[in-house]
């Protein structure tokens, strides 16, 4: 079933803000095995010019994807969530995410295309700090694979 094109350009307002904590950053850095002291040592982060420890570059994906999920699970869009795979992922940073940030994510469906039976969705996440300044813009391409039809059909 083709997706509802009227969803292109639709914006979903931010849900409750996410408070970035030092220990959550530490947990994430340890999970990816990254010992860069800028993630765990306040003094090391400050020596690089950051006010507090910063998060690894892909940390913010957890926040934006939770929001994107809200969008693509909208039953009116008509997406079969079970067929969705992650196609592309891109981050554009104005500054690194850091401990103490209170972040809000607004999501926008930028495009919906059909290619060889696959449905391709581009979703933008705008991550803003408490002052309303952009911290990072996150682009996520999701692909809903074509439904496989039995042979001969």
């Amino acid at each position: 079933m083709a997706l509802d094109q009227s969803f292109v350009g639709r914006t979903y307002p931010p849900s409750r803000p996410y408070e970035v904590g030092r220990e959550k950053i530490r947990e994430f850095a340890e999970a990816i095995g990254d010992g860069n002291p800028a993630y765990t040592d306040v003094e090391a982060a400050q020596a690089l010019g950051h006010p507090d420890v910063i998060a690894p570059p892909t940390f913010v994906f957890s926040l934006t994807f939770r929001e994107a999920e809200r969008v693509v699970r909208d039953p009116k869009l008509g997406l079969d969530w079970g067929r969705v795979v992650h196609g592309d992922q891109k981050f554009a940073y104005r500054r690194p995410v850091r401990a103490g940030d209170l972040l809000s994510v607004g999501s926008t469906i930028e495009s919906i295309r059909s290619m060889a039976g696959n449905e391709i969705l581009d979703i933008r996440g705008d991550v803003l700090d408490e002052a309303g300044e952009t911290v990072v813009t996150v682009h996520c391409k999701l692909v809903a694979r074509a439904v496989e039809t039995p042979e001969g059909e």
């Binding site: 990254d34 860069n36 910063i54 570059p57 892909t58 592309d88």
Partner: peptide
Amino acid sequence: FTMAEAARVVTDWTGDPGALVQYGVRF
């Protein structure tokens, strides 16, 4: 996870992960 590991080649090189301006991949 793979995207996070790949980024380490860049962030270990620059020392400061905050030096990253853009980062994108295709899976």
